[in-house]
Amino acid sequence: MGKKDRPVGERMRAALRAVRLEAWKAAIVYAVVDAVALFLVANLLVAAFDPAAIPAQVSVPDQLTDAVITVTGASLSGPTVPGSALVALVVGVVTLVVELWVRLRRPLIEQFEAVNPDIAEALRTARDAIADEQDSAMAARLYEDVLAQLRETSGVALVNVYRLAATVFVIALVSLATVQVAAVDLALLDGDGPGSPTDGTDRPREFEGLEDGDSVLGDSEDVQAGDENLTAQIESTGGEEEVDPTQQFPSEEGTGDLSGDFESQQAGFAGSEDLEDAELIREYNLRIREDEEADT
């Protein structure tokens, strides 16, 4: 039986289902786009401000990894996810759920009526007539009228294209900003940013430029006040002469005049006293590097 041959009441029911589906689609489109936008914004903010309360890496629960291993057969050893991504994911999911709930709370047919006012009263009446299971000639006439009008309307109006385009534009901007923040390693708060030497991970350091001494060596301390003394003897091996791996030191065969006792102290460094010293050291380092590069 073709669509046209079906009873008009049945066709009306199908049309109402289609209208409700359109409203669902519109709600999902809005919710997904907004959720993605807020996911990216949250990710950006957490990455930029790096609040101390949010850990840099969060371990994936074993139950989850076990499930993944069971399904995929892949081997996973203690996988972690960035804390910022996890927070952003939570924000995105909450946004998705809340927006869907808010948008679907209003009757779907009324949402369609709001953007198609010409058909509003007829559609609402048809909806109520269908709910009351009216099948009189007048009801049939109403259904036919509404079906004819629905053919002239569209559910596209349910989606505000300008609003959607604005959100997509924001998504694009925030995406670019996220890439930029990741590239320059921006950290606005005093947290441990990704890639810093003390980030607590075993990841290789990718930064090859000159760094501040504090960031390399950790907190400064008084070099005069090591709290553990070790005695060591150092003997020269005579330059290019091969060394017997089994040879014990101090050696009687040494040719150097370095047989005296040495008193060692624990390694340490002095924090930069002022900006001029730091700049001077940085300048020396740069020159040394340039010389090395010139030699090679």
Partner: peptide, 12 residues
């Protein structure tokens, strides 16, 4: 007879 069958929306 038809008049009595004219559908009216619940809210109206």
């Amino acid at each position: 007879r038809h008049v009595r069958d004219v559908p009216i929306a619940d809210d109206l």
